[in-house]
Design a binder for these strands. Structure first.
Lengths: 192, 192
DNA sequence: GGCGTTACGTGATGTAAATCACTTTCGAAA
DNA sequence: TTTCGAAAGTGATTTACATCACGTAACGCC
């Protein structure tokens, strides 16, 4: 299935667009390929686009004092990623995004998103729902952070994304869970 | 300023509505008053509405094993609050909302929100932006949770809502920060 | 007013996880 | 294949915070 079809089916779950409408919407997306390790957004830079992942896996992360890294999101196929704070407010990026694996994405500029949202009501509807899902996921993760200990969060993560365990290095999983790599290592070796 | 005017100005920041359009939108909101301590949403119940706070302060919280409480949000005037997971998915509430002080709110049902969103494109636009702001705030809080220690988060909270310190009991602030009330007490008494 | 409930302060103790230091394994490039 | 750097495992030590235990102050309420 090609990028266009993947995006089409993704949007169709939330908004009913005619083929002509979708073609018009799609014309605002720019396909792009990245190699493993390539940087998509780096802290301090200007942010113009958001990214729809077609294949591969990105990570969005924050680096504190150039020492500790915290992963905000692993972006898998059909996920969207960007520094939305910087994108919406037209400020410098405060987070980084790069590629854990080779990846194909579809790029949509902030201006084009606002343009197609204002031109087509169903597109605005789609983006409202997409944002809403992101909000709910973020709330859930926050709650999990407060409520669960590290082991529970680790198991929750693997239950949610079984692929992740083999796909990404363990120190990145630790950075997502917000614990040191040593603690994570001890956690799943002291099994049970 | 009355409830209607407060909502009008709140929406006007994001979406341009004519007076007639706003009157129509407003006709879907039901004003309601609550007393301090009154329950708005309780875990396990059905959730039909979201709430726009006109005056007073609500708290949205989760209770773990009927022991520990975690506060997801203090809802101040012009904030929106609900169990959005339950509201959007039509499932039982997993969180609670009650009133820290006497409060006036405007209630909007899930059905009515979807109705006015589909009828008026600018309203859909407004709700997309409102959700987006919530998403960004949630991401920011998550990052703060991972990155900052308790003292830094405490100072961040007070910088963001100076009123809160005198308005809400300290054990609720502790529940927001995700620490025990004892730790919070020691934190701000061991000043500096 | 007295009385009970809830909020808040503070010491003693236990514990999960950070940190530091070192070793081992793995994977890619020469 | 050898080599080198990154990733991962592991022990010792430190630390921030939870928990337990108790005391005091503040407030609704009959």
């Amino acid at each position: 299935m090609d990028a266009k079809e993947i995006l089409k089916q993704h949007i169709a779950k939330t908004a009913a667009l005619t083929d002509e409408q979708f073609d018009y919407v799609f014309s605002h997306f720019k396909p792009r390929s990245y190699k493993k390790g390539q940087v998509v957004i780096s802290e301090g830079s200007r942010v113009d686009h958001e990214y729809f992942v077609v294949s591969g896996c990105l990570k969005a992360f924050f680096v504190n004092d150039e020492i500790k890294m915290y992963i905000l999101q692993f972006a898998m196929p059909t996920w969207w990623s960007s520094d939305y704070g910087a994108l919406y407010n037209q400020t410098q990026a405060t987070i980084n995004i790069d590629c854990i694996t080779d990846a194909e994405v579809l790029c949509l500029s902030n201006d084009d998103r606002e343009k197609i949202c204002s031109e087509l009501h169903p597109v605005e509807h789609f983006f409202r729902w997409r944002t809403n899902r992101g909000y709910l996921a973020s709330q859930k993760r926050l709650l999990s952070f407060m409520n669960n200990d590290t082991r529970a969060r680790y198991e929750e993560l693997l239950a949610l994304y079984p692929q992740l365990y083999n796909l990404v290095p363990k120190h990145l999983i630790a950075a997502y869970l917000g614990v040191s790599r040593e603690t994570l290592s001890r956690l799943y070796n002291t099994h049970k």
